[in-house]
Amino acid sequence: MKNWLRYFDYNRVHRREVPWNKGVNVATRLRGPLIHSLQRFQVGESGEGRHLRKQAATTNDSVYMESIDLFIKEEQEHARLMAEVLKLLDAPLIGHHWSDTCFILLRRLFGLNQELLVLLMPEMIAKRYFRAVRDGVDDPVVRAVCAQIVHDEEGHVAFHMEFLQGAFVDLSIPSRLALRTVWRILFRASCMVVLWDHRKILREAGVSTAQFWWDCGLIFDEVAAGIFSYAPTRAFVRPAALVEAE
């Protein structure tokens, strides 16, 4: 976990330059869908993470607790970046959204390991979503913000994967299969919600429903394999930024 602490410290300093002075100028057809979509992702990233911090404290691992704290701050930084984009679009922030409330309630039903599995679902979806917006919205500010978030989400997913891989090392094969199956069902349900709620911006960004669904499935399969494969000594593939931070 010390490597991840160095990674988050490194990532906090080495951030992409966002040309805020240029403002945000998007095509009229993109403006409404982009605002609608960013408002919902922004509220989901703005939490204080009190429950996650409390669960992390049960590990009695000060390095992991500090890493979780830096992870939460990075998520809050995403909320700040999206809030700045919305401000430049003269759009208000929203105080809550039902999908975010559902995720929060679901996360609080379980212990740390299960909470991380729930937390990983929107993280995996966000990897594909922000890549779609980055590639499909022709604006330097939006692209820079989305590129930074995509980069960070790669690290977030790998961070939680590594912890859960160790946490489930003694889990039996039947238990692994059962947990993975339930997790996949919940993940696919989450994908359906995102596809419906963000369908307009995805369509305008040139990403079809089928493509988004397929790509999210590939991300899930890769992450699930890393967590649940019955290979305790399996080498963990770390993101390039973690290697660089070392």
Rank of each mutant, 00 (worst) to 15 (best):
I125F: 01
K87T: 10
I68M: 13
R107N: 01
A91T: 10
L109G: 00
Q76Y: 02
V133W: 03
L81E: 04
A91R: 09
L119T: 14
R128A: 12
I68Y: 02
H97K: 14
T58N: 11
D69N: 14
L109M: 11
N113C: 10
M124W: 04
M121V: 14
R134C: 05
C146K: 07
V85I: 10
F110Q: 06
M82N: 01
Q114A: 13
N113R: 14
Q55V: 09
A56C: 12
K127M: 13
Y129I: 05
D152S: 07
S67L: 07
R107K: 12
L89G: 02
R134G: 02
A147K: 12
W98S: 14
L81V: 01
C102M: 12
R134I: 00
P140H: 10
E115M: 11
E123V: 00
L70M: 14
A158H: 08
T59K: 07
L86W: 09
G111P: 05
I72Y: 06
Y129L: 13
S99F: 15
M82E: 09
F71I: 06
R143K: 15
E74G: 09
C146Y: 09
L112G: 00
F103A: 09
R131D: 14
E66W: 02
D139A: 05
G111Y: 05
R131Y: 14
S99D: 11
A158T: 09
Q76V: 01
R134T: 02
L116R: 11
V133F: 06
L106M: 12
R80W: 06
Q114T: 12
L120G: 00
C146F: 09
H96C: 11
E153F: 01
F71K: 01
N60M: 11
M121Q: 14
D139R: 07
G136P: 02
M65Q: 13
A132E: 10
Q148L: 06
M65T: 07
T58A: 12
V85D: 03
